[in-house]
Simulated assay, not measured.
Amino acid sequence: MRVDPKPKDDPLPSTPLRLVALEIEEHVAAGGWDQQPRLYALVPTAELVQREPVLAESLGVQLDAHPDGFTSIEQDGLAPDRPLEELLGEITWPDGVAGCAAVIERVMLPPEAEEHLPSDADELMTYVAEHPDRREVRLVAAVTRDGARHSAVRAREPDDATLLEGPDLVPGLLDHLSRTFE
């Protein structure tokens, strides 16, 4: 899957991190909603091709178009019964991994709803589930070892919801990912 360079009216730069984050979002979106969290290692494509020559042919077009780009490698074996943020606290990456990305679905409430949040966990779950202004969203967060960040958020409804993106839309998740490189 390849994401083309940005349209002329796009205010965000087409960095390798942004492009791989958008590619991951597009890939996950093709599978629909109600998916488990996903975690990806981000490896420089040029280095991957050097280390794994068999991949050179399949990644050749991507390497030609984006020689400084990343290849995302999905990590298997995430414990579905534990929150992703908790799992990230136990992860460290080998030196060959230049970045990582995560995709997770969440329910978001408008800022004004925060002042009415119950402190009891069960009451909180009910409050969020029944709130009339709740929105189900898919969050994509990507970071590099050197501190670059990109994030994207897509609402479940309407079906043609605009993808919002920027360097810090989901700061908590980005921070969790960044700590995997400390």
Results as ranks from 00 to 15, higher is better:
7 P>T: 12
12 L>P: 15
13 P>R: 11
13 P>T: 14
14 S>D: 11
18 R>P: 12
21 A>L: 12
31 G>Q: 05
35 Q>L: 02
36 Q>F: 00
39 L>T: 02
40 Y>W: 15
40 Y>S: 07
43 V>R: 12
49 V>D: 14
49 V>M: 09
51 R>F: 11
52 E>Q: 11
54 V>E: 07
58 S>N: 07
59 L>P: 14
67 P>V: 10
68 D>L: 04
69 G>D: 08
71 T>H: 09
72 S>E: 07
74 E>V: 03
74 E>C: 02
84 L>G: 05
85 E>R: 08
85 E>Y: 02
86 E>C: 04
89 G>D: 03
92 T>N: 07
93 W>M: 09
94 P>V: 06
97 V>G: 08
104 I>Y: 02
112 E>D: 15
114 E>C: 14
114 E>W: 07
115 E>P: 10
120 D>W: 08
121 A>Y: 05
125 M>C: 03
131 H>I: 03
134 R>S: 03
136 E>H: 01
139 L>G: 01
143 V>T: 00
151 S>N: 09
153 V>K: 07
153 V>R: 05
156 R>P: 00
157 E>N: 02
162 T>G: 10
168 D>G: 10
170 V>P: 08
172 G>M: 05
172 G>R: 04
172 G>H: 02
174 L>P: 00
177 L>S: 10
177 L>P: 04
180 T>L: 01
182 E>W: 06
182 E>Y: 06
